[in-house]
Design a protein around this nucleic acid. Structure first.
Lengths: 125, 125
DNA sequence: CCTTTGACTTACCAAAAGTAAGTAAATATA
DNA sequence: TATATTTACTTACTTTTGGTAAGTCAAAGG
C-alpha cells in the first residue's frame, strides 16, 4: 500500500495550465501585452519608457518569447537607425479581455488586500 | 522641450495592476489557489504532493503571502505531529472564476501556441 | 531508546533577473 | 575630418530569487 492516494489532486509538471502560467507567471509578459493594447503598434523604446522599471534586457527577452508564442508581431524596417514595430496578434486580442477581468478584480480588491497585508504584518510584530 | 511625450502610455511602478500581477506573476501562487479549489481544505503535505515540483520552501513562502493577502486561511491544530489546514477565503473564491477563464483560454490555444513556438524555433536555425 | 510523523527552517548553491557598458551604421553637428 | 546622436539591441557582470537537502520540534509507537 505504497501511495494510497488520500485526495487525488494533482497538478502535473506538463499541462496546459502550467504552460500558460509559466508564460504569464513572469514579471513582464502581461505588462507588455497591456502596454501594446493601448496603441495599434509601438516601438521598442516606447515600450521601454512606458513600462516603468523594465530593463532593456528583460524587454527584449520577453518580447521574443511573446513573439515565439504568436502573441506579438514584430516588424523590422531596415533603416538606420533601425525601426522596429511591435503589435498584438489576433491571438493576443482574444486573451486580453481575460487579463482585463483580472485587472478589474485587482482594482476592486486591492484596498482590502493592502489592509489584509497591514493586519498580517502587525500580527507578526 | 525635454520630454515631449509621443504616446503617453505609462505603466507606473505602483499601481493596482502591478500590485496584482506581482502576486500572480510568480510561479506558484495561482497553482496553489487552483489546488485549494479542488477540495474544501488541504494540509501542507497534500499540497506539496499535489503540486508537482514545488519545493517545501516555496510552498511555505507562497502560502504565507497568500495568507497575508487574505486569499488563503490557515488553521493550525495544536497536535503533535502538527496539523495545519489551508482553505480558500471568500475573496479568493471571487478571483478563481477569472483564473479558470485564463485556464480555458490556455487549453483552447495551447496547441496553436506550441505550433508557433516550433515554427519560431525553426526560423532561428 | 530510537524511529516516525508533519510542518516547517536554515544553510548553501544554482538559476533568473537587473545593471551598465558596448555595438552597428548612417546622419547631423563642430 | 572627427565626434556625437540615434535605435534596437548584446554582453559581461552582479544581485536577487528560487531550489536542494538537511535539520528541528515534541510526542507516540515499536
Amino acid at each position: 500500500m505504497i501511495e494510497n492516494n488520500p485526495k487525488k489532486i494533482h497538478i502535473p509538471e506538463h499541462c496546459p495550465v502550467r504552460n500558460v502560467f509559466d508564460r504569464f507567471g513572469d514579471k513582464w509578459s502581461v505588462l507588455i501585452l497591456m502596454a501594446l493594447d493601448t496603441a495599434p503598434s509601438m516601438r521598442f523604446n516606447e515600450l521601454h519608457k512606458g513600462i516603468e522599471l523594465i530593463s532593456q534586457k528583460m524587454l527584449t527577452v520577453t518580447l521574443k518569447t511573446l513573439e515565439a508564442d504568436g502573441l506579438v508581431k514584430r516588424t523590422m524596417y531596415p533603416q538606420i537607425p533601425p525601426r522596429v514595430e511591435y503589435e498584438l496578434t489576433e491571438r493576443a486580442k482574444t486573451l486580453l479581455p481575460h487579463i482585463h477581468n483580472l485587472i478589474d478584480w485587482s482594482k476592486e480588491h486591492m484596498a482590502d488586500i493592502e489592509e489584509s497585508r497591514k493586519v498580517y504584518q502587525e500580527q507578526l510584530a
